[in-house]
Design a protein around this nucleic acid. Sequence first.
DNA 1: ACCTGAACACCGTTCAAGT
DNA 2: ACCTGAACACCGTTCAAGT
Lengths: 241, 241
Amino acid sequence: MLFQAPILERRSSHVKLGGVTTRARRSERRTDALSKERIVETAIEILDAEGENALTFRALTTRLATGAGAIYWHVANKNELLTAAADDVIAAVMAGVVDTSEPEETIRAIALGLFDAIDAHPWVGAQLAPEPWTGLLQIFEGVGVQIQALGVPPAAQFNSASALVNYILGVAGQNAANARVEMGGGDRTAFLAKVADRWTERDPVDYPFAHQVAPQLRDHDDREQFLAGIDLILAGIATLR
Amino acid sequence: MLFQAPILERRSSHVKLGGVTTRARRSERRTDALSKERIVETAIEILDAEGENALTFRALTTRLATGAGAIYWHVANKNELLTAAADDVIAAVMAGVVDTSEPEETIRAIALGLFDAIDAHPWVGAQLAPEPWTGLLQIFEGVGVQIQALGVPPAAQFNSASALVNYILGVAGQNAANARVEMGGGDRTAFLAKVADRWTERDPVDYPFAHQVAPQLRDHDDREQFLAGIDLILAGIATLR
DNA sequence: ACCTGAACACCGTTCAAGT
DNA sequence: ACCTGAACACCGTTCAAGT
């Protein structure tokens, strides 16, 4: 599976440039010119390595060895930067999906690709505004075409695609929120155990379902559960035919 | 439909207290004591009236006629404040849902209640972290019990409830994101028209589904579409029996 | 126990000035 | 055209000091 975009793997060599001897040491100016692409790329590196809160213009200027104004010359504001970063990740996923001739299978591939990408870049889940955001459009389009191929009646296609996309975005948002919390320490199982503990702390009379389901919560696989939800919606869509 | 909590309607009378003549005018101290409840209540007022960005500790201290330290005595930090505010809204919805003897109907009532609440308080959609957050547990429990009543096999109950909840959260997140964008002006139809325009700007060859569906996007009803998604998932769950 | 409010360590963003 | 970096107007949070 190659859901990682080339742009994400390309490492820029701007941090240390010890080889340049003609350059005065104190100025440490980068060799390659600034560009929106390079800025977004660096932003993704920071977001992936240190989380959402670590992405500041000061952190960016340090890593890019430039001034704040330089960044603003290429990017309107922080929001545009975050959107562009998320779009990059989404675009890489959608480009990597291979279109099987089986629509349901392709939908699963899109969904899992997005799941894995957001698992690797949880901050993407927090960037879901449908404004300049082309990522959302791409997801919608990718899913929608498969819905058409599935033979869903035209009148129901919009709602069907919307259901799938909203479900995917819901999981994405949860992943982002979880990552924000988990950032401060332990592994996944420890985290789930803590949530399950909190659930079972409550009165079983008031929260019977939480109690019954807590053991499953403890050792479920997020990815499997995500896919089960996709299948559930696909099963629902199948009843429309 | 009474999905509005009592706490949300109770207007506190702290802004102007002209009747108090013994109080020195310049100090304008509030009459009632500070409490976490009152702070959360005021936070909700600000969030509803002016949006997420308007909720600052300075805005709070002004409205509550107090100092920053006073708020921190009752509330650990801003995140706890936001979580408490969201929990209040969710709790009000869940308390207002009447349990019909028909599980699918009750699930629809929960879902619509949450939809309406988040429509009225879009900032809630951005507070979905499953950490101290009891709101998420309440939703999960409310939905889960109905899933049990529906006769879904125990092994599939966790995934079924999870699918519904994640779908609801996805829509909630979208609503929050939309509200953030819409804050700066126009009505709902103007907003949808703008999104639809953006969709149809693209090449129809690359985005056939977006083009086909743009007219529906233009005049669809969010609430209806949301419910259609719930029904789709319920139809999928029905196939499990 | 509860509150005050100045101070601290940050933010995103702007802009006159440089090349 | 592109970049510099100080300055501005904010933030959330802390804390010595008051009652």
